[in-house]
Amino acid sequence: MIRFIGKRLLLSIPVLLGVVFIVFAIMSLTPADPGSLILGIRATPEAVAKLNHELGFDKPFFERFFLYIKDIVLHFDFGVSYMNRKPCLQEALSYFPVTLQIAALSMFFSTVIGVSLGVFAAVKQYSLFDTFFSVMAMLFAAIPGFWVGMMLILIFSLTLGLLPPSGVASWDCYILPTATLVFGSSAELFRLTRAQMLEEIRQDYTRTALAKGAPNRVMIWRHALKNALLPVITSIGNSFGGLLGGAIIVETIFGMPGIGTYMLKHILAKDVPVVMTCTLILAAMFYFIILLVDIAYALIDPRIRAQYARKRGV
């Protein structure tokens, strides 16, 4: 197991290198050079060319890429922002907590809500409860997050005046953004959990459990749910990636200083180092979450654990 984790951590290096390369290449294709971005439109071509030379922008693509990677690896230097000349990494990390809080909170609540309602709906299949929540889930999976966000502001902030519509001044600022994300992702988890549970409840081993004298709730929560959770955990991991991305929209709507708004501002300004840094942080986060999913898999399912063990030394 430890070998497996170590192997996966090592494997993250080529993955993240690939991510950096792709983003770097895309950013290089955009028709903008840092010299004119920094100095503005009124700068003389000579001054722009001089600055570009200082920044190394006149070097060939692969050389620039290599230098960029070298700076990261040797000095942990992610470059400075074209816009405000501040080191990218420190600045990006200062925006990160807000995003992480929204993503973690909404992941927690959508898991609790989605999974538990999914289990109940599956157990009471065809009941009013099941039908109601299935329809609701379909609805919320289909409605785009930004619309939900705006409606929540309209209802809870502007009409009822209960919650602040924007900012991060107090804890209740997080309620609406979290709720916005929870609607969509809990709907997804609900649908998946329900479908998985319906399948597991019909498996033979649940009947064996009942024949042993297991009360219904033990059969459902101890036997069926644990088996149903595997794909659900994958989905939770994936949705965390979605939530990080979705945070960009939510932060914009609710005016929160998170990595989403920060990144968006710098994307629009073609601030390459900042975009690169943010992308890299998000990619690393996502990779880490997926690793956690795989570990959770092995903890739950002995067959997968056995597979990891067999692949020893590979």
Partner: peptide, 18 residues
């Protein structure tokens, strides 16, 4: 399970895999 027990037809699926 206590008074009346049952042995099922297909042992491949009758046990909880995890």
């Amino acid at each position: 399970g206590r008074k009346i027990s049952m042995v099922f037809q297909d042992p491949m699926t009758a046990l909880n895999p995890i």
